[in-house]
Design a binder for these strands. Structure first.
Lengths: 112, 112
DNA sequence: CGTGTAAGGAATTCTGACACG
DNA sequence: CGTGTAAGGAATTCTGACACG
């Protein structure tokens, strides 16, 4: 019923050069964070990496953590926790939507 | 008051190869439509073109028009009209917001 | 551990031009 | 008018490795 028709934020279309420009990180750093499983760019047929805006946001977060001296291993753990929280939030949202729909199931005939 | 903090849709970050993949158009066609002032990619320092998701949407529209046999010159005119309409719509929106704000100026103390 | 760098190769993109129609 | 293509050059990206610490 509810579609994400244009999730530009997650489309993997940006090359590493632009990502470097946008984040201020070196190619070496960007590739290394991939090696450490912090980001997951896609590849085109020829093997060049493609990143999304989400990846760029993640990289900025990573850069901040690194400046604080946090190791990639720790950052990885923290990001896993974030993902779990996010899943929980969605579960909660679904439950609320369920209640909401139940409540209005029988008297939703006028407003579109 | 209302900010577009992350207008990913208009960020010029995509190279012509990806645009070609996404639209199905050839490099030649994409560059030609720029020459005819239908799209306006940016350039990085070294001169390579960078497109936005908006540009890609425009290109798809252009491709559809071209298939119908519409010439680039006509397409250009049509797109100018679209822009004008869009401006008018915003003017209307601003007027409505003005009235809305005036109406609630004195009794907006509870709900955020 | 995290990052820099030189190395060699492969893929990308650019421009201006000739071609066809 | 709109698009294809071959041409030559410049810029981009890739991998694996050595280096420092």
């Amino acid at each position: 019923m509810s579609f994400e028709s244009t999730p530009y934020k997650d489309k993997k279309v940006i090359s590493i050069g632009i990502v470097s420009e946008l984040t201020g990180l070196s190619f070496r750093q960007i590739r290394y964070y991939e090696e450490r499983k912090l980001i997951f760019p896609e590849r085109n047929e020829k093997g060049t990496r493609r990143y999304s805006f989400s990846d760029i946001e993640k990289l900025v977060e990573i850069a901040n953590k690194r400046e604080e001296g946090v190791q990639t291993h720790e950052i990885r753990k923290e990001m896993k926790q974030e993902r779990t929280k996010s899943v929980e939030k969605n579960v909660l949202k679904d439950m609320l939507r369920g209640q909401f729909n139940a409540h209005f199931r029988n008297n939703n005939n006028n407003s579109m």
